[in-house]
Amino acid sequence: TEVASSGEFPPEYLIKHPLQNTWTLWYYEPDRTKTWEESQREITSFDTAEDFWSLYNHIKTASELRQGCDYSMFKQGIRPMWEDDQNKCGGRWLINLDKKQRTTDLDNFWLEILLCMIGEAFNEYSDDVCGAVVNIRPKGDKLGVWTSNADCADSVMEIGRKLKERLRITSKTTMGYQVHKDTMVKAGSQTKNTYTL
């Protein structure tokens, strides 16, 4: 390009930063005429840090979404649902936020989770991360980080510890890991935490 040939900027600034994985953003909006699965819309996929920011800067923040809506960001090829092959033996680190935290913490936490995922902050355990979901709900918003194997305690705990550190989670916010299979059968009532931090 012109800029590159002028020598004005180091050429590395013109190269996008490739991510380890390609990620897909999903958006869920409740629609009575559709099934839950049909209401999950795949928005777009990206595989560079710059393309992540183009997308992030272009869409509403999580706190601006209507109640009942979700954003999900998953590795390409993994659908944001329990039934997916990559999720069916897994679970999620769940962070429940109280109503006030929608204005104080929600957007910061969600961005931090996204940065952890695209930046591969979980090191070798990053391979076990499937994606993350933010649920905007009247009773309190939820953030979930989904991993592929609930039986891998080392991996689940390391991912949880890193999340807690990066989100600077204090005692006012509890973090528990719930196995999807437990959540599926316990729909509507409290699911037990298999791991806690």
């Binding site: 900027f9 600034y13 952890c116 930046g119 902050a121």
Partner: peptide
């Protein structure tokens, strides 16, 4: 190796005009 980036590096790219 794994293509990993720390949070400060990623945050710097958010509004970097040269990264577009």
């Amino acid at each position: 190796g794994r293509k990993s980036y720390d949070r400060e590096f990623l945050l710097r790219l958010q509004f970097d005009p040269n990264s577009k």
